[in-house]
Every structure is written in C-alpha cells, then in structure tokens.
Amino acid sequence: MRHQTGDRRDLADTRSRCPGLDTVADLARGFAALVRHQGTGQHLDAWINRARNAGYPEIRGFAAGLTSDCDAVLAGLTPALELRPGRRPGHRIKTIKRQMYRRANLDLLRKRVLATP
C-alpha cells in the first residue's frame, strides 16, 4: 500500500510542475476511447478541434494528419460489415480456382467465375 501512496505523491508532484500534463493525458484518453469503441467517428471532429486548441505542436500536427486523411481515419474507426459465419470475401473464387488448378488459363477461369452464381 505504501508503494501506491508514493506513486500518487509522485504523480501529484509531476502535475504541479507540468500543468499541461492533464490536458495531454485527457486528449490521449479521448483518442484511445475513439479507437477502442469504434463508433461511427462522430466524435472525431470534436476531438480534432480540442487537439488543435491544445497548444502543443506535436498534438496539433497529429490532428492535422488526421484531418488530411479523414476518409481513411473514419474507415478505421467504423466497424467492419459483419460477414456470414464461415464465409470469407473471395471464398467462391478461391474454390473455383482450386478446382481448375493447372487445367485452364486465366480467360477460362474468368468465364467460369462470371457464369457461376
């Protein structure tokens, strides 16, 4: 128990010496929550605005990077579409390809893939 008390004392001392630490920690926790909960990215704009006004060049640069590639960031924060259990994208094509291994060229494979429902 004494170790935790010392840690709390050290943290309080650090916070008193570096008043911006709470702001940086709050921004980091907020971004981690955005990533962890994988919502629709609806809170991303609010987080970016807070980061731009934080007064730290590194955090402002990170926010600018998120803004410049916003579509990719939103795609990363949005949960993927649910797939049917046991099926993977491209599964049907891989099955046909395996059936035709060393039997046909790419043109015949293309025709078979397009003709198969």
Rank of each mutant, 00 (worst) to 15 (best):
T40D: 15
A80Q: 10
H37G: 02
M1S: 13
S68V: 00
Y101P: 01
D22N: 15
I96D: 05
D45C: 00
G55L: 07
Q4Y: 08
G76E: 15
F31T: 01
H3S: 13
F62P: 13
T116Q: 09
G90L: 07
G6H: 06
H43S: 04
D45F: 03
A80M: 06
T14G: 04
Q38E: 13
Q38D: 12
V35R: 14
A115R: 08
L106P: 00
T78M: 13
N53P: 01
R17V: 01
R98S: 08
L108P: 02
L21Y: 08
K97M: 13
A54V: 04
R36E: 15
L44Y: 04
A33V: 03
G76C: 10
C18H: 11
L106S: 13
A75S: 08
G61Y: 04
G76N: 13
A115E: 13
T67S: 11
D26L: 04
G65L: 07
A64F: 06
A25G: 00
R102M: 02
L74S: 07
S68K: 12
M1H: 10
V24A: 15
W47A: 03
D13H: 03
G20C: 02
A32H: 14
R36C: 07
Q4D: 15
G55P: 04
L74T: 15
C70G: 00
L27I: 05
L109T: 05
E58M: 06
G76F: 13
T67W: 04
H37Q: 11
N53C: 14
S16F: 09
A64S: 08
A63E: 14
G61L: 06
I59P: 13
I96F: 07
R29T: 03
R103L: 08
T78F: 09
P19G: 10
G86R: 12
I48K: 08
Y56K: 01
M100Y: 01
L109E: 09
S16N: 02
A104W: 04
L114S: 06
H91P: 04
G39T: 03
R98L: 04
L34V: 02
